[in-house]
């Protein structure tokens, strides 16, 4: 191998050999070769072996453990489930790797959100990446009348299925804090439908920080059950890139796995890029608004979460076959 200048030095040759060896080792591992990690793998989660620390998010509560003090919009994010992707028509579909995937499932209540959060801390600064193989579904409907053949924009035509319009959105996001309490979020949401169930297929980001329990306690904000906890005002969600059609695959019981790779820079407190299948979106110009106030007890916070939100009275599901978190430090 040679460098772009054609002048090898022992150091660059050694680095190139190490990089090639690392690539070769990863390529020979069926579980890792489907990922493209940064230099340090922090977590590789395959849900055939448990939930791997992906747990339900909940708002904060008082010193007496009284869960009635949890904010209404953050008290019912539902437990992630180990799912065999089993459906009424064909039985067990299974995951991309093995039988099980992690499933986030909403209630059948418009606006309800289910979450899974992974809690880590940062031992350095620089590029931070999450990769995942995912799919998304609305719960199948059994029975009813011909009215059930249409929903939102979609009427069943033997190909398109109203179930696709019953899926609201899913989100991948961070909760990060460094430099003596400077806290910020980065977000990427696939807005499948808007709140009127019209197909949007649009990636969007939140232009405001997430409301916090402290802000509620200070009287700054009070949100109701099923409010959008990431950014409650729909006008605070802004599009980036062109619309992207994913492979819902027509009916609610066919599962096709998609690749997602999302990079942020914790040194610059900035977005970098989002890749979903064959599309890569440059996110460097997307703003990352920090909280005005400093936060104690969160130094080097490194949280990732996935969420799914239904816009209809139909349960929405986000399935994760596997997740890999890596860092450049």
């Amino acid at each position: 191998m040679s460098t772009s200048t054609g002048t090898d030095t022992p150091a660059t040759t050694a680095e190139q050999t190490a990089a090639a060896l690392r690539t070769a080792i990863r390529a020979s591992d069926p579980q890792l070769s489907k990922f493209n990690p940064l230099s340090r793998i922090l977590a590789h989660d395959d849900f055939n072996t448990g939930t791997h620390g992906w747990t339900e998010l909940i708002g904060n509560y008082n010193g007496r453990g009284d869960l009635d003090t949890v904010d209404d919009h953050m008290r019912d994010f539902r437990p992630p489930q180990l799912s065999s992707c089993t459906f009424f028509d064909t039985g067990t579909h299974g995951a991309m790797s093995g039988t099980y995937a992690l499933k986030l499932a909403t209630r059948p209540y418009p606006g309800h959100t289910a979450t899974a959060i992974r809690r880590l801390t940062m031992s350095g600064k620089g590029l931070l990446q999450i990769e995942a193989y995912f799919t998304y579904k609305a719960e199948a409907t059994l029975g009813g009348t011909e009215q059930e053949d249409s929903f939102g924009d979609i009427t069943w035509d033997g190909n398109l299925h109203p179930s696709e319009a019953q899926f609201g959105c899913f989100t991948v996001a961070t909760d990060l804090c460094s430099d003596q309490g400077l806290r910020y979020h980065t977000t990427a949401r696939y807005l499948n439908t808007d709140l009127e169930h019209r197909m949007r297929n649009q990636w969007v980001y939140a232009g405001v920080p997430e409301p916090t329990p402290r802000e509620h306690l200070e009287g700054k904000v009070k949100l109701g059950y099923a409010a959008d906890f990431t950014a409650p005002n729909p006008e605070d969600w802004h599009p980036f890139g062109e619309p992207q059609q994913l492979c819902f695959n027509e009916v609610p019981t066919k599962v096709n796995w998609h690749y997602l790779r999302w990079v942020v820079d914790t040194e610059a407190r900035a977005n970098v890029e989002l890749q979903v299948n064959d599309r890569t979106y440059d996110m460097r110009q997307i703003p990352v608004p920090p909280y005005e106030d400093r936060y104690d007890s969160l130094e080097n916070l490194l949280n990732f979460y996935f969420s799914v939100r239904t816009h209809s009275a139909v349960r929405n599901f986000l399935y994760l076959d596997s997740v890999l978190i890596s860092a450049g430090w």
């Binding site: 448990g50 939930t51 339900e56 019912d76 437990p79 489930q81």
Partner: peptide
Amino acid sequence: RQSQTAVLERN
């Protein structure tokens, strides 16, 4: 063995 405790209803 794998295990999981899920809270199906909370308050």
